[in-house]
Design a protein around this nucleic acid. Sequence first.
DNA 1: ACCTGAACACCGTTCAAGT
DNA 2: ACCTGAACACCGTTCAAGT
Lengths: 256, 256
Amino acid sequence: MVGMTDTPRAEPGVPADPPEPPWRSAPKRRSVPRPQLSRDVIVAAALRVVETAGGQALTMRRVAAEIGVSASSIYGYVASKDELVQLVLDQIIAEVKVPSPAGGWQEAVKDVGRSMLAVFRSHPGVAGLTLGRVPWGPSMLGLTEFVLGQLRSAGLPDQVAAYFGDLAGLYVGGIAYEEEIHPAGDPAAEQAEVAQVVGWLQALPADRFPNTVALAPILMTGGHDERFEWGMDIIIRGMASFLDRPPDPAGHWPPA
Amino acid sequence: MVGMTDTPRAEPGVPADPPEPPWRSAPKRRSVPRPQLSRDVIVAAALRVVETAGGQALTMRRVAAEIGVSASSIYGYVASKDELVQLVLDQIIAEVKVPSPAGGWQEAVKDVGRSMLAVFRSHPGVAGLTLGRVPWGPSMLGLTEFVLGQLRSAGLPDQVAAYFGDLAGLYVGGIAYEEEIHPAGDPAAEQAEVAQVVGWLQALPADRFPNTVALAPILMTGGHDERFEWGMDIIIRGMASFLDRPPDPAGHWPPA
DNA sequence: ACCTGAACACCGTTCAAGT
DNA sequence: ACCTGAACACCGTTCAAGT
């Protein structure tokens, strides 16, 4: 079954698969007479490399070695490293769960964020790959549709709903990337590092930096989950504030 | 000024030496055989490299070439590439203007964000270096102090003020990085790319993706400034919402 | 038709050797 | 004391050549 998603399905009559996103190239080689390479094999190997050795270890040479093939042969199936990265992203975004909207739009949207963070956490190394990219792959579509639906039916202005993905995607990806870079592995070493910075801040001249000195102890506290929940809450509160002041009848925001 | 000792000086005051006769061997030791290095020289060269060739061009070899020195000599003044990056970041963050608080805390805090984005824009290539790093350099302190002071005197809970820097820093750095990656250089090519994605989204089956299809035209519209202002507004609105529901007398949030 | 191997033009970092 | 040059262990990508 590995080859299925590989097959270019131009055949009409097959129902409603979304069209290929613009960044996807057609594989250069088709007709596989032997158990040779394929996009799926390459993407799976890439994912294995990222998970076992981190995002910065995702190199064409390493992926090739993981499969047992030369680096150059990968270029028969994938146009560039960037395309491989997009394929990897699309694969793991497919794991994000679309939640039940029963708890209201605010919880539903937060749940998408939580699920996305959980997926990034379960594939350490992938979050860094989203930075500076918009993963407009097929698996992103279901998520986008759900979130847009939630925001619109809550009564938020279309432009507000449209911009939200930008902000939320940046936030979740950024948080996940920071967690990758500073893994929660060794709590003792982590606490020592925090204590060092807090100590430095508290040693500042209190007359010139009164607020920094005063807040130093709580500037760097809080676990990853706590900070993430707080950040999502801020964003959702900002979104919700648009419900108190709806746009004017022409749909413009801010209202005239 | 450290740079002064760097200037290669060929014995001032001594009048023009006649050229060496052919039979003379070169002197074994010149007073200053090579221009002396220093951190300032290296950081300045690094900044020049980043600005002229982008953040991904910041390599030790390129910085060395910019100065006219071997790559390995840089390690006499800077422990690693990461330290060099931190020095570059601190240098440019020093350019961020601390605004007047006259317009109220919301505008003041937004102005810090705007100024920071402006600085990143004027040094293209630097923003990407902030990702996954907390630039706790000396020049960050004045900014932190100002923002914390604004938020506290506005009446926001200390923990909310403490977390704000995290969120805002992630946002500004992320936005600036995205602008670096997709520079606004060629408006025609940019618009063509957007049109391609919009076309792809509009071609989706409208029964399965009604909201995505409906919002496709406005999902990717808006200039960089507009999106940035909107994102900052969302965050500030979220912050302001804490003023409507202040923390309980014990200082806890959310209030019991 | 598919894959390899060498090549090109790069990386960060180390370290013995030269001046 | 300071800097160089070679070396080590890597990159992404291309392309003639082999099978």
